[in-house]
Design a protein around this nucleic acid. Structure first.
Lengths: 174, 174
DNA sequence: CATGACCCTGACGTTAGGGTTAAATTCCGT
DNA sequence: ACGGAATTTAACCCTAACGTCAGGGTCATG
């Protein structure tokens, strides 16, 4: 019940809006329990709390949850491994922010960046491996499918008895 | 042990050799418990048993275990889903074998093949989706890595104060 | 200020995918 | 024929990632 007619004190810039755990869970496509659990593991911290202690999530939080889910389902990482990835990414953001501030201990910072870079590249390597694996699997699967299709053709076209290994041009239409 | 000097009755054609559960587990890279568990779920059935009831695995069994592991770790399927995939594949093999036998109920068989084909294509679709997801992730990750690398260059080359958005040719060497 | 919707913590339940142990059995080399 | 190594089933234990329930607190609204 907002933004009905005329008087809006502040339009509340869309990415400033906060959500209760219910709305957040729905938007992120996970359960409330999962949100609390992720928090318990230190994977997310809601943007804020009401004085009474109710969690308030912002867009950024939701994006983080999305990333968690991606890392989980796409890469099959467990929550501990995800914690590592996220911590490294947080580190980077922190440094990127601090970069334009006073030039304190520039060398240390560079070391951190190098470290993060290595972590990212490590992650990249595992993901790349996974991609290769999946591509191999796909090739394999396609071969099977082709064979199956060939068999089907043979069966539906009851021509002369088995003219040796199938050597007909394969139809690769989807 | 064996194969020492001269007299070998039958060379035992390598893929005819059988393994106890210990050897099989080691070769397949899983635990004995896992092998029994997979069998309990109907995912594998050892090639045979000794009269006393000890499991004997053949190469084919090991390949099957490898496939299970692939489906598990690469695609993130659970054992129930894997059971479906394997059953479909078994069905295909069965039909392929029966194909050259008597032409009993050719139409029914064709239906089965069509069904298997659909299952395979369904699997292909999910795998393809996964591949796309991973590719997106990789692109994303590469962008991050490039940004990090850029930041690092900026830090290590303490030139004039921040000449706006980095517009230097990126070195994409590994 | 009452009320209904929403949320809190804490504790226990569940499911997948096994690990571990125990007590009895089987196999194999000599 | 026998002793030790490898296996068997059964039973119990375990962790991750939540689900669910209980009992009580918070918040906006009329």
């Amino acid at each position: 019940m907002n933004a009905s007619s005329g008087a809006e004190a502040r339009p509340v810039a869309d990415d400033e809006r906060l959500f209760g755990i219910g709305a957040a869970a729905e938007l992120a496509g996970v359960s409330q329990r999962a949100l609390r659990y992720y928090q318990q593991l230190g994977l997310i911290t809601p943007h804020g709390c009401t004085p009474g202690g109710l969690r308030r999530y912002c867009q950024e939080d939701l994006a983080r949850v999305a990333r968690i889910r991606t890392l989980q389902t796409l890469l099959g990482l467990n929550l501990d491994e995800i914690a590592l990835v996220l911590r490294s990414e947080d580190r980077m953001a922190e440094i990127r922010l601090a970069y334009h501030a006073e030039g304190t201990t520039c060398a240390e910072r560079a070391d951190l960046v190098r470290e993060s870079l290595e972590l990212q590249q490590e992650l990249r390597a595992t993901v790349e491996a996974k991609r290769l694996g999946i591509e191999g699997f796909l090739t394999d699967l396609d071969a099977r499918i082709d064979k199956t299709r060939g068999l089907l053709e043979q069966m539906t076209a009851p021509a002369a008895a088995d003219p040796g290994p199938v050597s007909r041009p394969r139809l690769r239409g989807r």
